[in-house]
Simulated assay, not measured.
Amino acid sequence: MNNKFELSNEYALVRVLSVKHYTNNLFSFEIARPKKLRFKPGEFIMIGLIIRGELVFRAYSICSPTWSNTLEFYSVKVPNGLFTTFLHKITTKSSVIIKMKPTGNLILETLRPGKRLFLLCTGTGVSPFVSIVFNHETYIKYDEVIVVLTCRYSQDLQFFNNKLKQLTKVSYIRPYTKNKLRFYLSVTRELYPYIGRITWLIKSGRIITDLMTYNFNKMDRFMICGSRQMVFNVTKLLKKLGYNRGAINNPQDFVYEKAYISHFKGKN
């Protein structure tokens, strides 16, 4: 590594332990977890690559449980995206740079106490919610946890389906999820048992009907992660329904990751 990129204690150079490709554009990878790194479920860290002589960082949600010895991330290769084009090519012979201080708004502390937690996401926006559903405190705080994930095609659901299978094998978490964790997977560009975008699923009442559950009420809480347009549409709808946006210093009814929204207009 070139001396000009000498790292301070704020950063760590870590090995890539595994890479898994689900489609031509969707992939996940695991890296070694520095012993000093601590995070809350739902937080993200900055991952860096040296690209054409420059150190470039992007925000990535941590998919791993807080007790894992590794850190896992889920990514999409953005067409003509500088960072993800290089990231897509990493192997177990690669290393990446990470900033050692996780942060983010998608943590349970940003929400007021409630009964039902909806985790609303599209595509790779499911990443922070994987960590949250592997967290036993989530099920202590809520009577029901419902993951609503919308993708373009059914093959795009592979990563999350794999995580659900893993969850059933974790004896520590399994008792907490019993009769509490539910999920609603829909696609938008092919036939599938559930079809439609999240805003339509909520507006039409379809999601309530399909889940055979009660209507939205003041004890429902929401976390939102996905494309800029999806986050805009869903938060606008939730505000119209009378819910308020929360923050770490002001817990409310729903929250989204502000850092990602600013990134969507930038480079990928």
Score class of each variant (00 low, 15 high):
residue 2 N to F: 09
residue 6 E to Q: 11
residue 8 S to L: 10
residue 17 L to P: 00
residue 18 S to R: 13
residue 20 K to S: 06
residue 21 H to W: 00
residue 21 H to A: 06
residue 21 H to T: 05
residue 22 Y to C: 02
residue 32 A to P: 00
residue 35 K to T: 06
residue 36 K to C: 01
residue 45 I to F: 03
residue 47 I to R: 06
residue 50 I to M: 07
residue 52 R to M: 05
residue 52 R to S: 13
residue 54 E to M: 09
residue 62 I to A: 01
residue 70 T to M: 04
residue 70 T to E: 12
residue 71 L to T: 06
residue 79 P to V: 05
residue 84 T to K: 09
residue 98 I to A: 08
residue 99 K to M: 13
residue 107 I to N: 04
residue 109 E to W: 01
residue 115 K to M: 04
residue 118 F to Y: 15
residue 123 G to V: 05
residue 124 T to W: 07
residue 125 G to I: 01
residue 128 P to N: 07
residue 134 F to G: 00
residue 136 H to W: 04
residue 137 E to Q: 15
residue 143 D to R: 10
residue 144 E to L: 13
residue 145 V to S: 01
residue 145 V to I: 08
residue 147 V to P: 04
residue 148 V to W: 03
residue 149 L to I: 08
residue 150 T to D: 00
residue 151 C to W: 01
residue 153 Y to K: 12
residue 153 Y to E: 11
residue 158 Q to D: 13
residue 158 Q to W: 00
residue 161 N to C: 10
residue 162 N to A: 11
residue 163 K to T: 08
residue 164 L to A: 04
residue 168 T to I: 10
residue 172 Y to P: 00
residue 174 R to G: 00
residue 177 T to A: 14
residue 179 N to R: 09
residue 183 F to E: 03
residue 188 T to A: 07
residue 189 R to H: 10
residue 191 L to E: 13
residue 192 Y to M: 01
residue 193 P to T: 09
residue 193 P to Q: 08
residue 195 I to A: 00
residue 198 I to V: 13
residue 209 T to D: 12
residue 215 N to H: 13
residue 216 F to M: 11
residue 217 N to H: 13
residue 226 G to C: 03
residue 232 F to K: 14
residue 236 K to G: 01
residue 237 L to T: 04
residue 237 L to E: 12
residue 238 L to Q: 04
residue 243 Y to D: 09
residue 249 N to V: 07
residue 250 N to V: 01
residue 251 P to T: 10
residue 255 V to K: 09
residue 256 Y to F: 15
residue 257 E to H: 10
residue 260 Y to L: 14
residue 260 Y to H: 12
residue 261 I to L: 15
residue 262 S to A: 12
residue 266 G to A: 12
